[in-house]
Design a protein around this nucleic acid. Structure first.
Length: 271
DNA sequence: TGATATGTTATCTT
DNA sequence: CAAGATAACATATC
């Protein structure tokens, strides 16, 4: 599923293709998950392509009227982009949610099979409000171990694994990387936050950053039908516990359910 | 055929 | 009242 490393990978590739381009036409095909106002986009220049949490954000500028708008793509489970250099390379029509044509003849489309994703158009104020509701970026310079300690102070009674996946707590972690980080840190996913020792918090902090950085290097994990613009990621080959039978030390893994989500862990390595 | 997969959010419980 | 837990959404795949 697209989590931080996957969305970061997609964002970087998208940036290479569309940064600086001018939108000449935009169309939406699914009212429920794509803002109808997107259809009115014309003659707006893409000035920035970036990621926050699991969202891809495209900054648009109307230079003539000094008008700023923001396209926010959330991939959900199965949202994906399709980029075509030339018009004759048709974008897939199935599950089409939105499509954009640029002044150089290239096109970008967004498709979503399960429709957990969305494409929204926001003003600056509205965008800020949404972004402020997310927790800190785990790979930002400011995300020191002290930041994690302070966050944990506020969630003493909560379950550690479920909390790692909470976007309001830390941005970008999902079911795959929360499990992996806990395994690397040697922490049992059933633990309550208040039970974590100082050194366990340090280990978890370090594990999170190492894991996410490596996963980005490998262009994300391709499980189910995730793929980025240039093919598949490699990190699925490096996953230690997610949907596996044994851990790297050949111990048998256990699967439990937490908040309706599967969690794999090793009773021997994770305490 | 029904169980399984999950990001996000609405709603329920403690 | 708030923190925490859970249900609901959608649908391809096994």
């Amino acid at each position: 599923m697209p989590e931080l490393p996957e969305v970061e990978t997609i964002t970087r590739q998208l940036r290479k293709q569309v940064l600086g381009k001018k939108i000449v036409q935009a169309k939406t095909f699914d009212k429920r998950i794509a803002d109808h106002s997107i259809n009115k986009l014309v003659s707006l220049k893409i000035v920035k392509v970036w990621r926050r949490a699991k969202a891809v954000i495209i900054n648009l500028e109307d230079t003539l009227y000094d008008h700023k708008l923001f396209l926010v793509f959330r991939l959900g489970m199965t949202g994906h982009f399709h980029y075509a250099d030339k018009l004759e390379k048709q974008a897939p029509q199935e599950y089409l949610v939105a499509s954009f044509s640029f002044s150089d003849g290239s096109t970008l489309s967004f498709n979503d099979i399960r429709r957990f994703g969305s494409v929204r158009l926001y003003t600056e104020g509205k965008l800020k409000k949404i972004l402020d509701s997310f927790g800190p970026e785990p790979l930002s310079k400011g995300f020191m171990v002290g930041v994690l300690r302070v966050l944990f102070q506020k969630r003493k009674k909560a379950n550690i694994k479920v909390t790692l996946m909470d976007q309001k707590f830390i941005a970008g972690m999902g079911n795959i990387y929360a499990q992996e980080a806990l395994y690397i840190a040697g922490v049992d996913p059933r633990r309550k936050i208040e039970s974590l020792s100082s050194s366990e918090i340090s280990k978890l902090h370090h594990s999170l950053q190492r894991l996410l950085k490596l996963a980005i290097e490998k262009k994300g994990s391709s499980v189910d039908n995730y793929s980025h613009l240039e093919g598949s990621g490699d990190f699925q080959n490096y996953l230690l516990v997610y949907q596996r039978d044994v851990c790297p030390k050949k111990h048998k893994l256990v699967k439990i359910y937490q908040g309706g989500r599967g969690t794999f862990y090793c009773p021997k390595c994770q305490k």
